[in-house]
Each structure stands twice: as C-alpha cells, then as structure tokens.
Nucleic acid binder design. Sequence first.
DNA 1: TGTCAATTGTCAGCGGCTGTCATTACCCTC
DNA 2: GAGGGTAATGACAGCCGCTGACAATTGACA
Lengths: 194, 194
Amino acid sequence: MAAHELFVTQGYDTTTVDQIAEAVDVSQRTFFRYFTNKEEVALFVQDMVEACFYGAVCAEPPGTPPLECLRRTLNDVWDEVGRSVEEIVPLDLHLKMCQVIETTPSLLAAHLRHSLLMEEKLVQEIARRTGVDAEADPRPRVLVAAFSAVMRTAARQWGMREGTSLETAREVTRDYVAQLGPALTGDWGREHHR
Amino acid sequence: MAAHELFVTQGYDTTTVDQIAEAVDVSQRTFFRYFTNKEEVALFVQDMVEACFYGAVCAEPPGTPPLECLRRTLNDVWDEVGRSVEEIVPLDLHLKMCQVIETTPSLLAAHLRHSLLMEEKLVQEIARRTGVDAEADPRPRVLVAAFSAVMRTAARQWGMREGTSLETAREVTRDYVAQLGPALTGDWGREHHR
DNA sequence: TGTCAATTGTCAGCGGCTGTCATTACCCTC
DNA sequence: GAGGGTAATGACAGCCGCTGACAATTGACA
C-alpha cells in the first residue's frame, strides 16, 4: 500500500488522509469507505501478521501442553509470516512501519488494543484445546496474557535496535520467551544465560 | 471531577468537550490548557492508581526477590489506592469509570499505552533493585510485562462482572496472579485449584 | 493607582470522520 | 443498441477534537 510509504517517509501524524487518498487517486470519502479510520490502514499488515500467528496456533496438533504449543508455533511461523507480508507490501517497508507504530503514540495505542482482541481469540483457542472453561478457569487468560506481553516486549525492544530484519526479530523474540521461566522464579543470579 | 459523571452517565464518545467545559463553567480553550486531550481527563484517576502502585514498589524493602516484591506490593496497596482515589472522585464513580474505559475502544487503547509507560518505569525500578542492566538482560522487562499483563487481565475480567467493589477486585487479582506459575508449567489438570 | 504578569475567552482554522445526495460506471435484459 | 437497475464513487456540508494567535480580564504588588 502506498499509504505506508507516506507514513514511513514523513511520519504518521503529519500524513493527511487527503494525501493518502490523492496518492491512490481516490476521493477522501472513498478512502473512508474502505478503511474505518486512518489507523486501520496503518495497522493493516500488522493485524494480518497477528492473525497469521493465531491461525498457526489453531493448526498445531492437539495434545501439546499450552505454553509449549505457543512457543513452538512462534518458532515455526516466521517464514510464513514473511511470505504473507510480502504479498501486500515489501518486507523492508513493513519492518520500517513497525518502528513507526512503536514510536507514534496514537498508533501504538491502537495497536495494543488490536492485540488485545487477538489475545481474546487466542484465549478461546487455548481453552478449547485444553478442554478448560475460560470463564471459570483463569489459566488460559493468564497464560496468553503473559506470553503475548513478552512477545510484544520483544518486538518493541527489537524495533528500537538498528539491524531490523526478520532474522534478528526471530532471535530476540526467542530469547525473550525463553526468559519467561527464569524471570519468574526466585531471585536472579547476577548474570543471565543466553 | 464532573467530567467522569458525564462519561459514566452518557458514555465517553457521546460526551463533548464543550459539555465538560460547560459543566465546570469554563471555555473549551481553557479545558485544553489543563488537559492535553479528552482522554487525559478520563484516564486521570486510573493513571494515578498506577502511579500509586509504582510508588509502593519503590518503597518496598530491597533484597526481596522481584516477583515476590511485585506480588506483595499488589496485596498491600489496595487500601492506599482506595484512599488516593477518594481524594479526587467518589470510589463508586471510579469503579464505574473503569468499566467505561474497558468498553470504550479509544479509551481502552489510550489506557493500554499509558500502562506501557508505567511498565517501563517499573522495569527500571526492578532492574535497579536487582542490580541488573535492563538493556542487556531481558529478565526485568519479561517479568514486568508478564506480571502487568496478568494484572490487566484480572482487572478486565473483574470489570465485566456485576459486583464491582475494591474487595472483589483484590480477590480476583490475587487469584489471577497466583495462577501465573501454574498456567506456565506443563499441561493442566482438568480442574484448577482455588 | 498604575503596571506587569498570569489566566481566561474569542475567533479562526485544520484534520479526522460521517450523513446525504447526485453522478457515474457497470451489467443484464430485451 | 436502448433501457433500466444496482453498486461504486464523488461532491458537499457539517460535527467534533484540537491548536495558534490575539484580545480581554483578573489579580498581585509597587
């Protein structure tokens, strides 16, 4: 989408809906018929990525312990994510867009909310595959909340760095998720193990 | 604040800044000199509550294992939170306002972003008191992210229910945080233990 | 009382977003 | 090929959040 190039080059807030509309040679009114608001077009790819992860979790064979299921999916899904993204925008552009999202307050806020919606779907799926009632038993929500939060944290930290590639993202995320156990137990040794 | 009553009675989106300004007999322009935007007044108390929690963590004696430190603070801080809130708005009003925040998309988004800012402060504090470099060691961020996410989840679930009181909030939150360990380990038994 | 500074109000204007209605484009049928 | 119905688009007006600029008001202090 051409809108993303505008966001990346001149920033989200300073980009007008009129500019986007003009860039694709369409009236402003038509823009708002395809996207409910400016955020939606900015978060379009990101949302798709999360939907991709959700889909991969659903496709995981049943019987896997829930945390292991999420961890394994996360490790396997990167290539598929890369392919899905490339179908819409160049991957480089999307990676830059990730940084724009992290650094633009209003976009970041919207992104967090969207993530919350996806988390709820994940909760339902985890509850389903473990045969647990998500309304009575806190564990699905607790697990998904903790896991997703760590994923987001990893993504955020990764976005702050210089070398932004899918490969580094994968490594950083794996690192962070691996620390989920150690971070919770007891007091920490001075050094952490990589 | 009178604005909260308007939000609670007629909803956030349908409440105009002009209405708020008029309710306190002030021009719209003056309103925007005191608050940077409509969200800010809506999230004012909520932000204060989180700041209250952060302060309590900082006041915790050093040497406590980090997770235990957060857990204990959470358990002890409720009364103080109640008092702080009452200094600004009636507690009942704030509890209703919590539900408005959870159910209003734009407000929820802003709230999540604000929480993220507070989490970063928490990260720094946890890193400080454990003598760990938050930029090199993922554990402070991982711990805070997971813990905060579970807190938010608990708050969200609590907000959905009928009996909204500080006491039930305390119980629900304690329950959820207690499930953090069990939710992560292995596969779950059919029943969870309360 | 006169002066300075801070607070507030008024006005104009931009950008996001929506409802309404006219216009156009497309497709199917006769 | 003419006619008619439907869906997509555009043009316009208007609301609301928010900001800059400037004038008016207030209040403290000399």
